[in-house]
Nucleic acid binder design. Structure first.
Length: 467
RNA sequence: GGCGGCAUAGCCAAGUGGUAAGGCAGAGGACUGCAAAUCCUUCAUCCCCGGUUCGAAUCCGGGUGCCGCCUCCA
């Protein structure tokens, strides 16, 4: 089986073939660090992190680059509002980003370049575009000349005319074409600026991604990903800038995730209908948030709702319970020799991989994972001793799935309250022995209110925390 | 106006020509002091109309409804 990905450039699923065998140059548009990111922004971060993990699992060496936009209009305005420098603002929200991303199980990118650390790369790229007559200078601003790039619109499948006719852009008479966009913006008083061949100024938004991605990954990337709302104009512009400058294809596979909706509307900062990732992870377990994001195909819209998150939470608990159950069974007595469970697990694992290979169908893959759960639970419940080989096969597959999706294990951390909890459980067991169920249930309820769940089994009482 | 997406059980959702995965919730049963967890059983003909086909949720045509991009936006 080979991995196939839907490529927005060709509008087809295509076998994934990297430029350099065994390696993947992968770029994802990162956040503008002027505020906390919301749960809609979190979708690409989580979903593409899983794609990265899956590719690593397949054995690819993935160089995963996700930028921080730390200079633009929003940064400047917010810094003014807050009475701090743009740089301070950036530092603050880069740390916030990292805390939230880590809490959501998103792995650190290989590189996290910041626009302000790559001004030289950006200037060099603009210079090249000016030299090649793909850009022109007006009063210290530099604009990209869209009419000089015949392929403009190839990603969004729109001609210049189409784009222009629906455009809601203010006409700027200094521009040759209304869709020409700023590569460099001349300095304004009170704004951060850098020296350049066109005078002091700062980079436009689109240029940073072209400059940093090619600087770190070479002229042609294997994968460039981001939200669908970036297709036009951001990614279209990135293509124009990079290809006009290098004359080489910029990206082989363009991948875009669907929106996160709320009340049938796209969640977005400007609509004000957002929930920050920070608030969301205070309200719902990260495992549930991840499972929720992976429960639909990455290109479909997904509706954020209380009910949806609670469903995901219950489902995540089922996965976690199975994993705990499996560990316990492995610590106990087991039978040697063959068991059909081994083959059954192998089948589910194969299905899981096939789903992931098919344009990264996480929802389908989760189906196989849950079928594994049922098989394992059923096997453990049987009267006979569970099969060592079967349990081990299951453990290996669950670990593998966990490595890729990160939806099974709750964060472990030794529980600081362990002694106290176990003392209370012992007390409850005493009460149960003498049939003082009122007292036993009161103790159980007290623990439950702290999020501690008790399970009475034939081997005694077990406890676990809510996920 | 241009471009694109979606419509599958109470809810979420996979499936894109061969007779409907999975999850959540519900019902019945097993287990339990009661729960919890778990297991077993049960729960849909795929928005509408027409067509192609031996056969369609899946293809084609026509509707209806919802969403998005064309401005900053993941």
């Amino acid at each position: 089986m080979t991995l196939r990905l839907y490529n927005d450039l060709t509008r087809k699923k295509e076998p994934f073939v990297p430029i350099r065998e065994g390696e993947v140059a992968f770029y994802v548009c990162g956040p503008t660090v002027y505020d906390y990111f919301h749960i809609g922004n979190a979708r690409p971060f989580i979903v593409f992190d899983v794609l990265r993990r899956y590719m690593e699992h397949l054995g690819y060496r993935v160089t995963y680059v996700q930028n921080f936009t730390d200079i633009d209009d929003k940064m400047i305005n917010r810094a003014h509002e807050m009475g701090i420098s743009v740089q301070e603002l950036a530092e603050r929200f880069i740390s916030a980003y990292r805390e939230d991303a880590e809490a959501l199980g998103v792995r650190r990118p290989t590189h996290s370049p910041r626009a302000t650390h790559h001004i030289d790369d950006i200037i060099a790229l603009i210079k090249r575009l000016v030299e090649k007559k793909h850009a022109y200078v007006v009063d210290g601003d530099v604009y990209f000349d869209v009419q000089s790039f015949p392929d403009y619109g190839k990603l969004s499948q729109q001609s210049l005319e189409d784009l222009q006719s629906g455009a809601r852009v203010d006409i700027d008479i200094r521009k040759k074409h209304p869709l020409d966009f700023a590569l460099w913006k001349a300095e304004k008083p009170g704004e951060p600026s850098w020296e350049s061949p066109w005078g002091r100024g700062r980079p436009g938004w689109h240029i940073e991604c072209s400059a940093m991605s090619t600087a770190m990954l070479g002229p042609t990337l294997d994968i460039h990903a981001g939200g669908s709302d970036l297709i036009f104009p951001h990614h279209e512009n990135e293509i124009a800038q990079a290809e006009a400058a290098t004359g080489m294809p910029f990206v082989r596979y363009w991948i875009h995730n669907g929106y996160l909706m709320i009340d049938q509307e796209k969640m977005s900062k400007s609509l004000g209908n957002f929930l920050t990732a920070r608030a969301a992870r205070g309200k719902y377990p990260p495992l549930a948030i991840r499972l929720f994001m992976l429960s639909a195909h990455y290109r479909s819209p997904i509706n954020f709702s209380e009910e949806g998150l609670l469903q995901a939470k219950s489902a995540a608990e089922r996965l976690r319970n199975c994993s705990l159950e499996l560990d316990e069974a492995l610590r106990g007595k087991t039978a040697s020799g063959h068991s059909p469970l081994v083959e059954e697990i192998a089948g589910h694992r194969q299905a899981f991989m096939a789903q992931m290979d098919d344009d990264f169908n996480t929802a389908g893959a989760l189906g196989s994972l849950f079928e594994t759960v049922r098989a394992v639970n059923g096997h453990i419940k049987e009267e006979l001793l569970p099969s060592r080989a079967g349990l081990e096969a299951a453990r290996r597959f669950l670990d593998e799935a966990e490595e890729v999706m990160g939806v099974i294990k709750a964060p472990v951390a030794d529980d600081p309250d362990r002694e106290r909890i176990e003392r209370l459980i012992a007390e409850r067991d005493e009460a149960r022995k003498v049939k003082d169920f009122t007292r036993a249930d009161a103790l159980r309820d007290a623990l439950a209110s702290e999020g501690i769940i008790l399970e009475d089994g034939s081997q005694g009482t077990r406890w676990k925390r809510e996920i």
